[in-house]
Design a binder for these strands. Sequence first.
DNA 1: TATGAATGAGATTTCATTCAT
DNA 2: GATGAATGAAATCTCATTCAT
Lengths: 219, 219, 219, 219
Amino acid sequence: MPRPTTSRREDGSTTVPHREPPLTVRGARTRARLVAAARTVFERDGFLNARLADITTEAGTASGSFYTYFSSKEEIFQAVLEELQDEMLHPHVHDLVDADDPVSSIAASTHAYLESYQRNAKLMQLLEQVANVDDKFRELRKRRADAFARRNAQAIRDLQARGLADPKLNPILAAGSLSSMVARAAYTNWVLGEDWDLDELSDTLTQLWVNALKIQPTT
Amino acid sequence: MPRPTTSRREDGSTTVPHREPPLTVRGARTRARLVAAARTVFERDGFLNARLADITTEAGTASGSFYTYFSSKEEIFQAVLEELQDEMLHPHVHDLVDADDPVSSIAASTHAYLESYQRNAKLMQLLEQVANVDDKFRELRKRRADAFARRNAQAIRDLQARGLADPKLNPILAAGSLSSMVARAAYTNWVLGEDWDLDELSDTLTQLWVNALKIQPTT
Amino acid sequence: MPRPTTSRREDGSTTVPHREPPLTVRGARTRARLVAAARTVFERDGFLNARLADITTEAGTASGSFYTYFSSKEEIFQAVLEELQDEMLHPHVHDLVDADDPVSSIAASTHAYLESYQRNAKLMQLLEQVANVDDKFRELRKRRADAFARRNAQAIRDLQARGLADPKLNPILAAGSLSSMVARAAYTNWVLGEDWDLDELSDTLTQLWVNALKIQPTT
Amino acid sequence: MPRPTTSRREDGSTTVPHREPPLTVRGARTRARLVAAARTVFERDGFLNARLADITTEAGTASGSFYTYFSSKEEIFQAVLEELQDEMLHPHVHDLVDADDPVSSIAASTHAYLESYQRNAKLMQLLEQVANVDDKFRELRKRRADAFARRNAQAIRDLQARGLADPKLNPILAAGSLSSMVARAAYTNWVLGEDWDLDELSDTLTQLWVNALKIQPTT
DNA sequence: TATGAATGAGATTTCATTCAT
DNA sequence: GATGAATGAAATCTCATTCAT
């Protein structure tokens, strides 16, 4: 349809398939089983190749039960994504400003990002796949990237104000570019399958970031 | 959405019955029309949504004629990609070593990369989409990224040897990371649709790169 | 729906599934086989219960071939309907005015209508079913009924002008009502399954019509 | 559109497991709510498009409660129909014989029929739809039409015996045909959506009926 | 009685690929 | 080489009906 396409009503209006949250304990359990199954199947087969039937089979439910809780593959994918922590979705240095020691702060957040990327590599790969196929997810990612860039840009601005970072840099572009660097490096390593050591990569990225901003030691 | 009967597996294990290059002039013309049509359709509809029938219709040929020249959508996509210059596929600084002035060299190649990315944004988006869906193209991208990274790593190593770059950096990881930065920044700008000015972005990236490597002026 | 319901293009635009008429002889033959098969299946199973698979099976084609020529059950039903003569779709007296003998004229057209109704009873039943289920066909029927009513109303007006019919009657309402009488009587007899004799029914309807209009003998 | 799992056959051969009438007050109330909801939903969506889930939602009951009172959509439709007065289901002249004044009698019953048709137009449309889809309802309609025809035929026979109506007419066929005329005219006006004035239509139909039977004034 | 989650059969529709002309 | 009709596998989605609580 396509749906339908599928207009149900005789007046041609289409009801947006809104799914109610489960009201009973049994319902909540079934929904949870479906989400877990979806994660398994997505990670195994990829988003595009995953069939709803695979998911329900994996969850041990009837095929029709899927639609009790979700109205599309996209929707259950979103539910799967919600298990990803926000902090993991983008590299960040949000404690940069508060820190007496920006370098350790960058090091810490970089390391944390890489670790969680590695831990969720399959899911990150999925996200990459879906964001390049589905406009809604592309938009979602853009909004998140923007939010992080703004926070990092503010941090850079603060450092510049305190004379601790290269004043010539455009804070927004620099923040976006350096975030990009970390995100793409992680992608290259764990999705494309380079075999860089996590700690070494973390150190290099931290060093590059610090150098790039020309961060001055605070002491 | 019904499943395409082909390209089921994500591991890319599809047998490719090779098609002979066209022998006659008419054949060469038809093939060229198909490739051009494919580019149009891919850019309009995306790789996944593009149907072979759309391509043959756009090319003004019968649907069956497709198989005279190509044996799959992947294969014609490869043909379309061959129009992209190699240098455009990855950010590079290959003239870095020879240059007396590494900064201008970085600036020039960054600017060139961004320009061609902007010019071929639709195709780059396609490449991103396909590389995240088809293992063969993912592999292809990895090999190319590796090749560029090796060359850039060598350049960095040379600068370090001449005392012109931060000796603490791991040349391979630094090269990979900085390339990633430029590639992903371009992607963010022209695929995700940020609205950064090309020149400003180019300047920022150059500055970050130079800072990151702690490149010393040669004079 | 069927494909998510079902926008093909990435921009969300939906292509109206316009089917080209067949270009080859083979194509024309296949299309004809499908229409014939559809009539058989519709008459046997009714419009709603008919499955496209039944039609293609009956036609001896692959299921997918259906969509080479039609894009929906409604569309092939329309093709089946086109075999019905226009004159058969509504009771009419269009030669009423010209006739020197309006009574024989009414008798002849009534008899002709009933005969063709009987001959196409199954199809008329189908039309009744579909017109009460599908707005497009309901509209189609209304337009046709209107056209016939206008012609008959004109005939009545002429008779009134010549002093040959009851001048108190509203020509439009009388025409509509008397047409309704014939149409519904035929429906009652051949669809609901009364067992009235065609000739007797024809005579009665003619007599009622003549009486109702108070038609005077012209001699 | 996927096929409903039930009511496959057009011959209406569905086993109907009877439901006991509700024993408690609460039960009676629930049943009444369901019937009212069904009418609303049927009139809004049509019989075929109406889902049992829509009905229970509208009634504010759980979906499973439906089967406590009804065993199918057909059965609840029948319950909805029972709200329609019998007299409304067919045009009638049942007081014709007793009347000293057959013309006024015909006028009165015609007018009454049209008025109630207009008032229940949505339900009459539904009945038309269902009677053309479900054999049980088609049979029901036929039986009722027969009963009315018999009564009207008797009335005509009486008039003929008293020398007050055209003796050449077959009473049964005339009764059936004239009833058809009124019923179909009402259908055309309020279901197909002509825009005839009720009183004008009523007058015309009465006049046609009186003329058709050649009814003589009794005085 | 009432609830609402669970079930699963089954039709539609797509489109890559083949093949007779 | 070119044509375009024919093929058929496969996945989605619906919703009447059942059933455990």
